[in-house]
Design a protein around this nucleic acid. Structure first.
Length: 155
DNA sequence: GCCAACGTTGGC
DNA sequence: GCCAACGTTGGC
């Protein structure tokens, strides 16, 4: 089993939006970066752990624990002319963008970016690396465990 | 709003 | 294939 961190802008899909969705599950639409797509398409497995991260907002940080809830399938927004994620070069026969469904396991007290930066054991998480802009990054098991430990400590 | 970092595009 | 210009991300 692998672990991932997935960024969502709460203005678009927040942890509360995802919790309110049927089966607490949302399709991870709108990824338009090949590296991030490839993680979903090639490496994610149903049941993988996901850190649900809020980005581009007043309080960036990890807002929930989730899991991969589907195998990859084409992102429907790439075919939707009205969507800002529409991609004229994608066809149903040859879709360009693949996604997975993500199911919330639990909402957590926000582990803010600032808090994450304070923890030496999280120092080399990819998401904290300078200049990192990838919206999906793999998370090492030791980092996952360190975050679980932080959560159990805070209750 | 600023700006560093980095991905993408397109001319050559 | 190179690389400058441009666009986007995302924290601050």
């Amino acid at each position: 089993m692998n672990y991932w961190l997935m960024k969502s802008e709460p203005d678009e899909v927040s942890i509360d939006d995802a919790l309110a969705a049927p089966k607490k599950t949302v399709p991870w639409t709108g990824v338009r970066n090949y590296q991030a797509r490839n993680f979903m398409r090639d490496q994610m497995r149903v049941g993988d752990g996901v850190l649900f991260y809020h980005s581009s907002c007043p309080e960036p940080g990890i807002a929930g624990i989730a899991k991969v809830a589907s195998t990859p399938y084409p992102d429907p927004t790439q075919f939707d002319r009205k969507s800002k994620y529409y991609d004229a070069k994608a066809t149903k026969e040859e879709p360009r963008w693949m996604l997975v469904d993500v199911q919330i396991v639990k909402k957590i007290p926000l582990v803010s970016l600032a808090q994450m930066r304070e923890r030496p054991e999280l120092e080399d998480m990819l998401v904290l690396k300078r200049g990192n802009r990838l919206s999906i990054t793999p998370v090492e098991p030791r980092h996952w465990k360190a975050i679980e430990k932080l959560l159990s400590r805070s209750g």
